[in-house]
Structures are given as C-alpha cells and as structure tokens.
C-alpha cells in the first residue's frame, strides 16, 4: 500500500475535525472559536461527501446505466448542511460584535482588558 493511499477524503476530514476541536479547546479568542467551529464543519462536510466512494461510478443524473451511480444521499444532506453552516457562522459573528461593543469582551476570560490574538 503506497503512502499516498492513506490520504483519502475521510481521513483528512477526521483530521480536520480534530484540528478544529483542538482550536476549540485551547484558543481563548472568541473569533478563533468561531473559526474552529467552521473548520470542524468543513471536516464533517469532507467526510460525508467522500464516504461510500466507488471507483468508476457515474454522477446520478439521467437514466444511463452503463456504470453504477454515485451515492447521492450524502450530497443532498451536505447541500443543506453547508447553508446551515453559513447561518451558524453569521449568528456567532453578530453575537460576538454585540458583546464586544456592549461589554468590551473579546476573550473567554474573566479579565475584561485582555487583548491580542496570542491566546
């Protein structure tokens, strides 16, 4: 088995999910938390889209039956999930701007005056 065979969509998706989880656990900046959530979402999208991959399958359009169809279920699920991801990111960023302007909070911290992006 060649080393490049390990780099499939599912494995990269799992790694992206855990990179996002690491960002959620360690970073104290709220914007970085929202970015980590987006990275986790991207990992889930990639995992679902490349799942049940079969060699030489054709797109599920029309009635041509010379080859097997690609699984259309993950694509249809991810179409809705991507739009929901946009909505979640927009809600998070709006709430962050509200809290920053009203209370001056930019970090998950008890110290109000904490600034910078190194956390």
């Amino acid at each position: 088995m060649k080393p490049l065979d390990f780099i499939t969509g599912e494995i990269v998706g799992i790694l992206l999910f855990f990179i996002g989880l690491y960002g959620l656990m360690t970073k104290k900046t709220i914007v970085k938390t929202i970015m980590s959530m987006s990275i986790m979402e991207s990992g889930i999208f990639l995992f679902y889209i490349t799942i049940n991959f079969t060699e030489g399958a054709v797109p599920p359009i029309g009635q041509a039956q010379e080859a097997a169809f690609v699984d259309p279920v993950p694509s249809a699920l991810m179409i809705t999930a991507i739009v929901i991801g946009i909505g979640v990111t927009a809600i998070g960023l709006t709430m962050f701007m509200h809290y920053k302007q009203k209370h001056g909070i930019t970090h998950w911290s008890r110290n109000r005056n904490q600034t910078g992006s190194g956390h």
Partner: peptide
C-alpha cells in the same frame, strides 16, 4: 437524483434548512 432527494423524497430537510436560514437572517 440529488434534486429528486431534496425536493421530493426528503423535502423535510429543505423546509427546516430554509427555516434555519431565515432565523439566522432575523438574528443578524
């Protein structure tokens, strides 16, 4: 086939996705 799924077989998904997008726009 994807359009057949999200417009006919699993149309509930589309309904609640549209609701989710509208809620996020109202929040923004």
């Amino acid at each position: 086939s994807v359009a057949a799924i999200y417009l006919n077989y699993r149309v509930f998904d589309t309904l609640f996705e549209a609701l989710m997008l509208m809620v996020s726009v109202m929040e923004v």
